[in-house]
C-alpha cells in the first residue's frame, strides 16, 4: 500500500447551528493529485481551513503522513513540509518577488542555500524579469505565480491549493497546469477549484462536496457525467 499523505476521520466543523463540514473521511496517497469541487457553501473551503490549521475542527482528526495534526497552528503544519496557498492571494506586497520567495526558502534552509533555492524557483517559474519588483505592482496572474513559488520553494511533500486558477487568463491557466504537474512529481496535491476546464486538464480523481459531506469520489470523467453531481453542481451552472 502506498504511503498516505493526508487523512481525515470524521472531520466536522460547526458554526453555531450550521454544520459546514459533516463527518468528512478523506484519504490522499503520496504523490496523488486530488481536486475538490462542489457548489458554493458545500464545505470545501471549511474543510481546507481545517486541514491547514486556519481553523480548528469541532470534531474528528487530521493525520499527515501518520502524524496527528488536529488543531495545530498553521506554522507547525507548514513546518512539516506542507505547502499552502489560500483562496485570496496571500503575499508580502511591499517586498520584491525575490524577497518573498527567499523568506519562504529561508524557513527550511540556511541563508546561502535559500539564495540558491530562490534563484532556482525564479527560473522554474519564469519570474526572472520581475524578480526585483514589488509584489504590489504585479498583475494578478504574476502574483498567483509568485505565491506558487512560495509554496514550491519549500520542497513540500503535500501541497494544498485553494482556487489557484481563480481570476487567471487562459495563458496563465496553461502555465499553471504545467507548474502543477511539475510540483506533482514530488508532492501530493489537494486543489479546491471551480474552473471545470482546468479540473479536466489536471485531475484524475475528484472529490465532490455537497452540504458539508462528501457526495462522491471518482475519476474525473465519471464525476462529470454523473447525474447527481450534475444536479447539485454542474446542472445549476449550465
Amino acid at each position: 500500500m502506498a504511503e498516505i499523505a493526508l487523512e481525515t476521520h470524521g472531520l466536522t466543523m460547526r458554526f453555531g447551528g450550521v454544520v459546514a463540514a459533516d463527518r468528512v473521511d478523506f484519504k490522499l496517497e503520496a504523490r496523488e493529485l486530488r481536486c475538490l469541487i462542489g457548489p458554493n457553501g458545500a464545505g470545501k473551503s471549511t474543510f481546507f481551513k481545517c486541514i491547514t490549521g486556519l481553523q480548528s475542527p469541532s470534531e474528528g482528526e487530521v493525520y499527515m503522513r501518520g502524524i496527528e495534526t488536529t488543531g495545530w497552528m498553521p506554522h507547525r503544519i507548514a513546518s512539516l513540509g506542507v505547502g499552502i496557498k489560500t483562496q485570496t492571494p496571500n503575499v508580502l506586497d511591499s517586498l520584491s518577488v525575490h524577497e518573498n520567495i527567499w523568506l519562504a526558502a529561508r524557513r527550511f534552509h540556511g541563508s546561502r542555500e535559500a539564495d540558491r533555492k530562490t534563484r532556482e524557483v525564479i527560473e522554474l517559474l519564469d519570474l526572472g524579469a520581475i524578480s526585483r519588483n514589488g509584489l504590489g505592482r504585479l498583475a494578478h496572474g504574476e502574483r498567483q505565480r509568485v505565491e506558487l513559488g512560495l509554496v514550491a520553494v519549500g520542497d513540500p511533500w503535500l501541497i494544498l491549493l485553494d482556487e489557484p486558477a481563480a481570476g487567471l487568463g487562459a495563458g496563465d491557466v496553461e502555465r499553471l497546469t504545467g507548474i502543477i504537474h511539475e510540483l506533482n512529481r514530488q508532492a501530493a496535491l489537494v486543489i479546491v477549484e471551480h474552473d471545470m476546464q482546468f479540473i479536466r486538464s489536471i485531475a484524475e480523481t475528484v472529490t465532490v462536496f455537497h452540504q458539508g459531506k462528501v457526495l462522491m469520489e471518482d475519476h474525473v470523467e465519471s464525476v462529470m457525467s454523473d447525474p447527481v453531481v450534475r444536479n447539485v453542481y454542474l446542472g445549476r451552472k449550465a
Partner: peptide, 8 residues
C-alpha cells in the same frame, strides 16, 4: 498569515 503558512 503568509508568514505562518510558510512555517514561521
Amino acid at each position: 498569515t503568509r508568514m505562518s503558512l510558510m512555517g514561521y
